[in-house]
Amino acid sequence: MAVRRLQKIPGIGVDRMADKADSMRNANILRLENLDTDLRPPPAAIRRTHDAIDDDAANSYLPFMGQHALREAAVERIRRSSGVTYDPDAECIISAGGLAGILNVLLSTLETGDEVVLTDPTYAGLINRVYLAGGVPRFARLIPGIDGWRLDLESLADAIGPRTRALLIMSPSMPTGFVVSALEWEAIALHCERAGAWLVYDAAMERILFDGRQVVHPVSLPGMRERTITVGSVSKEYRMIGWRVGWIVGPEQLMADVRLTSLSNVVCQVGIAMPGATAALTADDDGVAAATAEWERRRDAVMSALTDLPVIRPHGGWSLLIDTEQLGLAPSEASRRLLERGEVAATPMDNWGPSGSRYLRLVFANEPIERLADIRARIRLSWDI
């Protein structure tokens, strides 16, 4: 019998889908199930990581809150996005990846039973971390439309209650590719102010924006510096998934608690990974613009191939959703047929928010356009459409 805090955490599904695809040992399978990318990290990051392996200072627990150069780079990264400055020593902590940072923030802000508002659908791992921290997830609905996703502002208002402690918002969001607009950020900020709640901003994909969109960092809004905790990482934008380096940046009065939680949880970060992360954040050309352009081309290729299917257009990120319920298929059945008949691995969105159970996710970040060219034929073969 699982302990109570685990009873509502069924997993994320990606691991099981990946295991099935791996077990088939078939190089023809399109790997669209996991949020990976085949695009290389910044060359400077790779070189500096190689150097760090031979650097005794990198083989250390110290400094517990992360190397100073990386903390400086992280707050400068946020300053460029928002125009807001932070003290790298008092207001920045390096974490062992972005999601570890989010868990540490939730553990530092929630009492048991406190509510956290997320968008729906959203990454199951965010929902699960709310549960792990003793919180209760509430959901603001995302509305699918011809041009993509929009936040239902009435649903957002309905999700706010007397026990709301935080809003946990990712933009661009997994798995939808939803990008929060300036108007939506203003509504979110207003609710944070009225409820006296924190905004936990998952900025892991902040610059992976399509169709000419520009970054809107919520901390730039009036009054939000003292309410916003930004959690970022090198995994997505910088294509450095295996480094497991992230950062938490927020107001000094909260960061003392986050420091204590970080010391009590993972203790410290990956020592040999931090110099490479610093190199990525300070490189003259970090490759994010070129990588984003390539991911946008892949998105366009998939959207064009699936134009007759109920696919919702992502405005950023690495993935998109198909509403298989509109096709008369449960996502789990659509996924099974797609793997067995069409040799495509794709994850059903069960447990990725209340509406997730009608969607199948396709990750377009990990396969080149040439490999994606026959995706419509594979789907037709699999679903008899």
Rank of each mutant, 00 (worst) to 15 (best):
E186F: 05
E186D: 15
E186L: 12
A187V: 07
L190C: 13
L190T: 14
H191S: 13
C192D: 15
C192R: 11
C192K: 12
A195G: 10
G196L: 15
G196C: 14
L199Q: 13
L199N: 09
V200F: 10
Y201C: 07
D202P: 02
A203G: 02
A203W: 06
M205K: 00
R207C: 03
I208K: 10
L209V: 11
D211R: 00
R213Q: 15
R213T: 03
R213W: 00
V215C: 06
H217W: 02
P218D: 05
V219E: 14
V219K: 01
S220I: 00
L221P: 08
P222K: 00
G223R: 09
G223F: 10
G223Q: 11
E226G: 00
E226I: 03
T228L: 09
T228N: 03
I229T: 11
I229D: 10
T230S: 10
T230N: 00
V231G: 01
V231I: 10
V231W: 01
G232N: 01
G232Q: 04
S233W: 02
V234N: 02
S235Q: 00
K236V: 02
E237P: 03
Y238A: 02
M240F: 05
I241A: 02
I241G: 04
G242L: 04
V245W: 00
V245A: 05
W247N: 07
W247F: 15
I248K: 04
V249M: 03
P251C: 05
Q253C: 03
Q253W: 08
L254C: 11
D257S: 14
D257E: 15
V258D: 07
V258N: 12
R259I: 06
L260W: 12
L260H: 06
T261R: 14
T261V: 15
S262E: 01
N265G: 04
V266F: 04
V267F: 14
C268P: 01
C268K: 00
Q269V: 01
Q269D: 09
Q269Y: 10
G271L: 03
I272Q: 06
A273V: 01
M274G: 06
P275G: 02
A280D: 08
A280E: 08
L281Q: 07
T282K: 03
A283F: 13
A283K: 02
D284K: 00
D285H: 10
D285Y: 13
D286R: 00
D286C: 09
V288T: 13
V288S: 11
V288Y: 15
A289S: 09
A290F: 12
A290G: 11
A291R: 12
